[in-house]
Amino acid sequence: MNIKPFGVEEWMNAWETGARYNIAETCVDSISMDELFQLTGENKEDFLKNFCSRRLTYGDIEGAPALKRGIAGLYHSIHEDEIVPTHGATGANHHVFYSLISPGDRVISIMPTYQQLYSIPESYGADVKLVHLKKENGYLPDLEEIRRLAIPGTKMICINNPNNPTGALMDKEYLEEIVKIAESVGAYVLCDEVYRHLTQEDIWSESIVDLYDKGISVSSMSKVFSLAGIRLGWIATHDQEVLKSLFSHRDYNLISCGMFDEAVASLALKHKDVLLERSRNIVRESLAVLDAWVQSEPHVSYVKPKAGTTALVYYDLPIDSYTFCEEMYKTTGAFVTPGDCFEQPHSMRIGYAYGTESLKDGLKAVSKYIRLKGEYNA
């Protein structure tokens, strides 16, 4: 299989360790196990005693019942038997394509988004068509363009809601328009929903699976629940043929998830409201900090995110984003992601939810670098 290098992950792997100000991180400020027990009020000793007495088998092959109950509680209509646990959302996205996409299949995706959503189906020989998100449309997909590309027999439409890297959010009405297009050609809609529920307003975040029987939701414990270290994600769908294919293909590449990962996730999801409140408070406070900085910094601009933990920020200096981000890292210690990782030149993705003080310090460092470059290019 030939596949393009994964731009954003290669950048993170190369530079994240040693960053002085990490404002590239996309998870809401990660928590420790001790913090998880403090937040939930669960008894740590009882949890560990119970787990340590268990034999370390493969566990529940199709997922621990408590885990699947917790995941189902994040949706309006999903049942426990309509969930496939995976190794993170990256494992979930890959598994969907691995299970459903064949050479020649028409797949419609968007850009910018997480690269898996177009590079993996392309590597399988799919006929991938991209819809480019535009600032002037608030980074929402052009419905007419999707409609034009959705020819009879289209296999899948891939979206990301909230969007990474822009923070754009499609509401129920917008998603329903995409569902109508998919229904007209019998296509699946795969929605990467790893930032779902991280809204700036107190609203219910719609999931594609609550709106469409052929909708496929992917998510994880990493971003919203601050538990990336347990590497646990899932796929949710009502489509029984899809579920059959997912479980069949799972025997070849996954078998089961880790018992400890599932136990920790089950505990966290039992107290999802507490963790969601914490995460929403962090993203709202942090976005206010970022927005104030953008308004005060004359060399940058953005479309203010509606949800999620990331923003795509443009700068007006005559320098490509890889050079910009690498030089800034070496000069100031500020670590952001080049926009060119998402094929968005002269921009950077800023992750704003990994600690307010770190964000403030990191943004000061970005301004310092911009001033230095501005003086150099004057």
Rank of each mutant, 00 (worst) to 15 (best):
N160M: 06
E183H: 00
L130I: 14
I83W: 04
K155E: 11
K135D: 12
C191M: 12
C158S: 11
H238R: 05
S99F: 09
L100Q: 01
D202Y: 09
N93R: 11
G138S: 08
P112M: 02
S123A: 14
P318W: 01
R250T: 07
K270T: 09
Y302T: 06
E45S: 11
L39Q: 05
G153Y: 09
I203C: 11
N13S: 14
R250Y: 07
Y354A: 13
S347G: 08
A19H: 06
L56Q: 13
P112D: 09
A353D: 07
V313G: 02
Y21L: 03
V300H: 01
K330R: 15
S286C: 15
N22G: 11
T323D: 14
R55W: 15
E144G: 13
V366G: 05
G339H: 04
V300W: 01
E375S: 12
I216T: 06
D127L: 03
R349C: 14
E183M: 05
T154E: 02
S102D: 15
S248E: 15
M348I: 12
H79R: 15
K223W: 06
L290K: 00
L276I: 13
I350Y: 06
G362T: 04
Y329P: 01
A19K: 02
L254N: 04
K306T: 13
E262I: 00
A334D: 12
Y352C: 03
R371G: 10
R371C: 11
A64V: 10
S226C: 14
F6E: 12
Y21H: 12
L254Y: 08
T166Q: 08
W293L: 00
E45L: 09
S279D: 04
A182F: 06
V283C: 03
T332P: 07
H87N: 15
H249R: 12
R106Q: 11
K272N: 13
E241P: 01
L246R: 01
L267E: 11
L133H: 03
K214T: 05
P152Q: 12
T17Q: 13
P5V: 13
F335I: 11
M156N: 03
C158P: 04
V185G: 05
V209W: 12
V264C: 03
Y322D: 13
I110K: 00
L211A: 03
L287T: 08
D46F: 08
R371Y: 15
G7R: 02
L133F: 04
R148W: 12
S32I: 02
D213V: 04
T337W: 15
A268H: 02
K180C: 09
E201D: 10
E343D: 14
W234F: 15
R280V: 06
G7S: 06
T166M: 06
L100N: 00
Y124K: 10
S217P: 00
D29P: 00
A311V: 02
L130D: 08
K134E: 15
D213G: 05
P121E: 07
R284Q: 10
E35K: 11
